[in-house]
C-alpha cells in the first residue's frame, strides 16, 4: 500500500534520506471504509433531493445554510480576507509612506531646511564675519585651556 514517495528523494543529496513514516495497514483500511461510506450516504441524499427538481432556493434554515455553502465565503471574508486587506492597506498607506519613507525623505528635507538656515549667517556684513571669527578664536581658547575637563567629559560620555 501507499504510493511511491519519489518526490521525497528529490533533495535527498542535501537533506538526507527521509525516514519513512508510514501508517499501518489496518488504519488505512478503516480510513478508506469510513470515507467511502460517508461519500455514499451523501450521494444518496443528493439524489433524493434533486429528484424533486426544485430550482428555487430552499427556505428552511438548514437548506439555506447549505445553499449558501455553509456561509464559508462570508465567514472567510469577514474573518480573514477583509482584515488582511485592511492591515495590508494600513501598512502600505501609513507605515510605508509616512513612517519609513517619511523618515528617509525627512532626512533630505532636514538637510534642505538647515541649508536655508545656514545660508542666513552668510549675510554679507564684514563686521559680523569678523565677530564670528573672534568668537571662533575665543572658543578655541576655551577649548584649549579646558581640555582635561572636556576629555574627561567625553570619556564619561563614551563610558
Amino acid at each position: 500500500m501507499g504510493g511511491h514517495h519519489w518526490l521525497s528523494h528529490q533533495l535527498s543529496s542535501i537533506v538526507g534520506e527521509p525516514t519513512e513514516i508510514g501508517l499501518s495497514h489496518a488504519t488505512e483500511w478503516v480510513l478508506m471504509a469510513v470515507s467511502v461510506s460517508i461519500a455514499v450516504i451523501a450521494l444518496l441524499m443528493a439524489v433524493n433531493i434533486y429528484r424533486k427538481k426544485t430550482d428555487e432556493a430552499p427556505t428552511s434554515f438548514i437548506g439555506q445554510f447549505f445553499y449558501n455553502k455553509w456561509h464559508i465565503d462570508e465567514l472567510y471574508n469577514t474573518v480573514i480576507v477583509n482584515p488582511l486587506n485592511r492591515f495590508a492597506g494600513f501598512l502600505k498607506n501609513s507605515i510605508e509612506k509616512q513612517v519609513i519613507d517619511g523618515a528617509v525623505n525627512g532626512t533630505g528635507k532636514l538637510v534642505q531646511y538647515s541649508a536655508r538656515q545656514l545660508r542666513l549667517i552668510q549675510n554679507g556684513q564684514v563686521g559680523y564675519y569678523i565677530l564670528f571669527m573672534v568668537l571662533g578664536i575665543v572658543l578655541l581658547f576655551l577649548l584649549w585651556f579646558n581640555d582635561t575637563l572636556l576629555l574627561r567629559f567625553f570619556h564619561n560620555l563614551i563610558k
Binding site: A88, L91, K92, E96
Partner: peptide
C-alpha cells in the same frame, strides 16, 4: 511579512 502584505495591495 511586511513586504508581502504590501504586495497584496499593489
Amino acid at each position: 511579512l511586511y513586504a508581502s502584505f504590501i504586495a497584496i495591495r499593489q
